[in-house]
């Protein structure tokens, strides 16, 4: 037993990734299906992971994926645990103060989700006095703060927790990603009896919105390489092929799609 522990300790301590010149460490999350998820054997998969792999392939660099909890994502980037974040991070002005973003690589609207029959619309008046569950420190949380002053907001740490809490009955209605809510919840047995409420809501505003790859500020060389690689996979069909494995609709940002046509 002692030997096992010693060898474990050694392998874990010595497993510090070596820093070759053309190596990039990428922060990913693993708790945001179908964009990133962890299988029982610990393997990461999802659209974010595929995008990261495809970008590394185009940039001809060796990549290490570093799994990180959502809350510590930007702090870990700035503390140099990794070089960029591919974790479905929405581009916002607030985040721009701390990190630089690539061009957006996908854009999906947000959605209210509730038990069938509970709500027919989601106006601030309809939801006054109700508890809305949302991801903490997210553009969606900011949107609620701004537009739903009379509702109680339950801000949780991870996106799957939004649906766990809704299913657990801890709030009356949830505000989440239209894609994640469908994939991680509505299309699973646990999501039975829950439906999307009203139309999709786009939080995309001038200069904000869409999901980008975050990098440390002024890491311009890396940002240009990432943008070039991103444009490449979007232009040659790699992007659409990958996306079609997960989504039945187009998730490419409108501006990027327009530029291709």
């Amino acid at each position: 037993m002692r030997n096992t522990i010693t060898s474990l300790v050694l392998t874990t301590v010595l497993a510090v990734p070596a820093l070759a010149s053309d190596q990039i460490r990428i922060g990913v999350e693993g708790n945001y299906p179908p964009f990133s998820q962890v299988a029982p054997d610990g393997a990461l998969s999802g659209f974010d992971i595929d995008i990261a792999d495809a970008l590394c392939d185009r940039m001809q660099v060796e990549c290490t994926l570093v799994q990180q909890e959502w809350e510590g994502m930007i702090p870990a980037l700035s503390a140099n645990r990794f070089d960029m974040i591919v974790a479905s991070m929405t581009i916002t002005d607030a985040r721009r103060e701390r990190v630089d973003f690539s061009d957006p690589y996908y854009d999906v609207p947000s959605r209210f989700i509730a038990a069938e029959g509970d709500f027919t619309s989601y106006s601030p008046e309809d939801l006054a006095g109700q508890t809305i569950i949302v991801l903490r420190n997210s553009p969606r949380a900011d949107f609620l703060e701004e537009n739903y002053p009379d509702s109680r907001i339950l801000a949780v740490d991870r996106e799957p927790a939004v649906y766990l809490e809704l299913a657990a009955g801890r709030g009356d209605i949830a505000f989440g990603s239209s894609v994640v809510s469908a994939e991680a919840f509505l299309n699973t047995p646990q999501g039975e009896g829950f439906v999307q409420v009203g139309d999709p809501i786009s939080l995309t505003r001038a200069g904000e919105g869409g999901v980008g790859i975050a990098m440390r500020k002024n890491d311009d060389a890396l940002r240009e390489r990432v943008n070039a690689a991103l444009a490449e996979i979007m232009a040659d069909g790699t992007y659409d092929e990958m996306a079609s494995q997960y989504f039945e609709f187009d998730i490419m940002p409108e501006a990027a799609r327009d530029a291709l046509n």
Binding site: E71, I74, P75, S78, A94, R98, R136, N137
Partner: peptide, 9 residues
Amino acid sequence: GRDVYYNHL
């Protein structure tokens, strides 16, 4: 404290 750190680093 955690929120301040998250938002201002």
